[in-house]
């Protein structure tokens, strides 16, 4: 993760200073589908349509208004966007057709890139684990993903979670839908080298495209 450089005399992160503290412009330049944010008309249909609606610290329409109001830290440090289940209900109901799901992912991803995302946010942790898991060989290893998730908070809580889910795991193994041997080796594409090189290049291009820290 890249560290934030500051401009020095004011202690304002350089990226914020570059946009003269206009957070909306920063979001438009750096966040996936960020150019849509200004289109929100504050109707709140997204909030009312979200399956996890009650759990959002700030529902999407509030996030959009906070972006326009320049509340950079409050938005990027919030765990609100991490409540998105990718159900796309807000997207199909939004009267202005904002790609809200994509924007929420984009803001979460930008917060993560800047190191501002809340630590120990479970969905943030899972998201990173998932990406690392599926890009390690090019395909998901479900066994390693599950075990990694349960043991992320240490051995004791991991064992407790495994004990709770053990009957289910045994059921899945019996049903031929979970393979303990995947801990040793799992499915994978042949050209793992090519996939790794391709992703490395894509990351380098992205870093150039969105130079968030200089």
């Amino acid at each position: 993760m890249q560290a934030l450089r500051t401009t020095g005399h004011q202690g304002i992160p350089a990226v914020a200073a570059r946009y003269r503290n206009n957070f909306l412009k920063e979001v438009e330049a750096h966040v996936e589908d960020g150019e849509w944010v200004k289109m929100c008309m504050q109707c709140g249909v997204c909030a009312g349509s979200c399956p996890f609606g009650p759990h959002w610290e700030h529902p999407p329409q509030e996030i959009f208004m906070m972006i326009r109001a320049g509340k950079r830290d409050e938005v990027l440090k919030s765990d609100a966007m991490w409540m998105c289940t990718s159900c796309y209900n807000c997207v199909v109901r939004c009267p202005r057709k904002l790609p809200i799901t994509q924007i929420m992912h984009g803001i979460a991803s930008y917060a993560q890139e800047l190191g501002l995302a809340p630590k120990n946010q479970p969905t943030r942790d899972f998201s990173i684990q998932f990406w690392n898991n599926c890009t390690k060989t090019g395909r998901v290893n479900e066994m390693k993903l599950t075990v990694g998730l349960y043991f992320k908070d240490g051995l004791v809580s991991g064992i407790k979670q495994v004990m709770n889910m053990l009957p289910v795991a045994i059921g899945l193994i019996k049903a031929g839908r979970l393979n303990p041997f995947e801990l040793i080796s799992g499915h994978s594409p042949k050209d793992q080298k090519g996939i790794a090189a391709m992703l490395k290049k894509a990351r380098a291009i992205e870093a150039q495209r969105a130079p968030a820290t200089h």
Partner: peptide, 26 residues
């Protein structure tokens, strides 16, 4: 032949927009 993961919906904190698009483009 030799297909790879699509990145699913949850990978956004680990992989950027281009990385996820490239996975699918392959």
């Amino acid at each position: 032949p030799d297909w790879n993961c699509c990145g699913a919906s949850i990978a956004y904190a680990g992989g950027g927009e281009l990385e996820r698009a490239v996975m699918n483009a392959r």
